[in-house]
Amino acid sequence: MTGGYGTGADILHDCTVAVNKGEIAVIVGPNGAGKSTAMKAIFGMLTMRSGQVSIDGEDITNLSPQDRVAKGMAFVPQNQNIFTSLSVEENLEMGAFLREDDISETMHQVFDLFPILKERRKQAAGELSGGQRQQVAVGRALMTQPKVLMLDEPTAGVSPIVMDELFDRIIDVAKTGISILMVEQNARQALEIADKGYVLVQGENRFTDTGSNLLSDPEVRKSFLGG
């Protein structure tokens, strides 16, 4: 993929990311490496100059973000990823807005995954704690029964304990057969759970390997994980 915002300069240069079914792929890299930009490119929020995006072998490069949702992509933005004035339950319902069938079973699955949301279902999502908000955000995205779940820094701004719990939940989601593609600041913890890791620098792939290999690679450790 090569592209940038609007008619501005290219931010991504021949960058490649991919994730297999039921696996977790993590994009890490220094600030300004184009991690979030890569996510937006995959979701169709960017002007692409070359390259392609496909899901299940189907080329979706020219689809709008909304159409990509219908194709099985779900995106959890980093900021403002919930409807603060709506209740938790309504947030989930809105996540499933495109679906015409019965959503109650999916909602049960989300509640099984995030029990705290069931407890707080009638509460306004904006009144929840940071970690709980992230769970709402992920839950909302799961309501479309996506094939690929894209998370942009899901642990930004939450405490380390909550972060560990969120990662556990993300592993649970992957176990249900959903592919997960995420961008993370907490590179070390994220790579620990990753099947595949991408280190991005200045919009280019620098290292690509399994999470554990990247963690043990001395050069990656020295440059990006602080020794």
Binding site: P65, Q66, V69, A70, F75, P77, Q80, N81, I82, F83, T84, S85, L86, E90, E93, M94, G95, F97, L98, R140, T144
Partner: peptide, 22 residues
């Protein structure tokens, strides 16, 4: 109603409403 809720959702967070297919 679903339509009413989608109105509130749109009013609350336009971008996320678009992502949800509203």
């Amino acid at each position: 109603t679903r339509t009413g809720k989608s109105m509130r959702a749109y009013s609350d967070n336009e971008d996320l409403a678009l992502l949800s297919g509203i």
